[in-house]
Amino acid sequence: MACWLCLVCASPLAAQEKWELRKHTDGIAVYTRNLAQATVKEIRVICELPGTTAQLVNVLKDVEHHQNWVYLNRKTQLLKKKNPNRLVYYTEADLPWPLTDRDMVVEAVFSPISQNQQAQVEVKSVLGYVPEKTDFVRIPSSLAVWEISPVAKGRIKVIYTFSVNPGGSVPAWLVNATVATGPHNTFQNLRALLQKQANQ
């Protein structure tokens, strides 16, 4: 899925710099890096979470409950289930002033969980499905990649990388000042959700 984590802007053709650690608290490390021809950052989150690969994959597939843990998510709606591992959904972000709220349509592709319990999820913007709305800026392109692997019984490691062209006007100073907040909050919420499931 594509989080509303940081409002970053990235060009896939841009030269990439090294990752810089921006925040590392509560076991959640948030990195950013500059991209050529972009004024704001791409992000990466690395952390360990309770649960199994299958449990996290099921949470990611439960798109209509993403608002329970994704930072700034107003709503998410499943549009089409091409097959159990290929979903198209629409999502809205309730952004703080002075930013205009964003929306987008994405397709999530879930790789089969391997024998060693590793999985990858790629979430990419797609065109069509939902007409553009006057109260939102439609995000033209985004890419989120989840890499999931077990590290111990009942624990998994997640590497999450996200880049987006948010469209419209986005003040770089505002984004760069708060770039680590959204990712950290999102993964705190995700951890709490998985822990609650583990306790039930």
Results as ranks from 00 to 15, higher is better:
7 L>E: 13
9 C>N: 14
9 C>Y: 09
11 S>Y: 04
12 P>T: 15
14 A>I: 07
16 Q>C: 06
22 R>A: 10
23 K>C: 02
24 H>V: 01
27 G>L: 02
27 G>Q: 02
27 G>E: 02
37 Q>S: 14
40 V>S: 11
40 V>N: 15
52 T>F: 10
60 L>D: 01
67 Q>A: 12
67 Q>F: 09
69 W>D: 00
71 Y>P: 01
72 L>G: 03
74 R>G: 11
77 Q>S: 11
79 L>R: 07
82 K>G: 09
86 R>W: 02
91 T>A: 02
93 A>G: 15
94 D>P: 05
99 L>D: 08
103 D>I: 06
109 V>E: 14
109 V>I: 14
113 I>Y: 02
116 N>F: 01
116 N>G: 00
119 A>V: 01
122 E>C: 08
127 L>R: 14
131 P>N: 11
133 K>S: 12
146 W>T: 06
148 I>L: 14
150 P>E: 13
159 I>Q: 13
160 Y>F: 14
164 V>F: 00
168 G>F: 03
170 V>W: 02
171 P>K: 04
175 V>R: 03
177 A>R: 13
183 P>K: 03
184 H>S: 07
185 N>V: 04
187 F>C: 01
187 F>Y: 04
188 Q>M: 07
189 N>H: 12
191 R>H: 10
192 A>K: 12
192 A>Y: 05
196 K>Q: 15
196 K>N: 13
200 Q>P: 02
